[in-house]
């Protein structure tokens, strides 16, 4: 009976163990594939009962997640490349989304190195909201400058909410396993 009840746990435990043992390269590759998959699906027309679905910016979630592990070259390169693809697909000026992704990445690294070494729940909850808000504010600014008029905020807000929901679901995948160590002398 106990064995039957524990069976699903053991299945997930295997996956968890594999993920824990995976190095940063593997985690980065898995995260990149996930971003690409979500982005490619996002390129297809998506509508339910005639309503166009809002699609999240997976690259922003990846930038935030990878930034938590500190600055690194490979995530930066990937984010710039994905940013160019986003520019092309969204008809944004070239470099726009690369800039936004890198800013999010840098802000995430800065916040977590400065304030979140202990991974406190408050910071963990609030920091993505603040950082995504800055990212989407940049999207709004670039879009407004590019089109020479102030663009609508509502669609950007919808994307912001959807991106945050996506963050809640898949943020662990973008954890590279490296962790900024607690400041010496602190309690953690």
């Amino acid at each position: 009976m106990a064995k039957t009840r524990n069976a699903p746990d053991s299945r997930f435990a295997g996956v968890g163990r594999l993920w824990r043992e995976a190095g940063p390269t593997t985690r980065l590759s898995v995260g990149t594939l996930l971003v690409l998959a979500i982005g490619l699906i996002g390129l297809t027309p998506k509508s339910v009962f005639g309503t166009e679905l809002t699609w999240p910016y997976a690259a922003l979630v990846a930038a935030f997640g990878w930034g938590r592990s500190g600055l690194a070259f490979r995530p930066m390169i990937i984010l710039v490349i994905v940013g160019f693809a986003q520019d092309v697909s969204a008809y944004a000026p070239l470099g726009c989304f690369g800039f936004i992704n890198l800013t999010t990445f840098g802000l995430s690294a800065l916040v977590h190195r400065s304030f979140d070494r202990e991974r406190s729940p408050v910071i963990t909850t609030l920091s993505p909201i603040v950082i995504y808000a800055i990212g989407f504010a940049q999207v709004w600014l670039f879009a407004s400058f590019n089109s020479n008029h102030i663009v609508q905020i509502a669609p950007i807000m919808q994307t912001f909410v959807i991106t945050y929901i996506l963050h809640i679901i898949i943020a662990p995948v973008f954890d590279l396993g490296r962790r900024a160590s607690p400041i010496p002398g602190s309690r953690a």
């Binding site: 930066m76 000026p93 726009c96 690369g98 990445f105």
Partner: peptide
């Protein structure tokens, strides 16, 4: 590198 990349992308923009 982060700052250079950001500056480069902004320059492209």
């Amino acid at each position: 590198a982060l700052f250079v990349a950001l500056a480069g992308l902004f320059g492209i923009l």
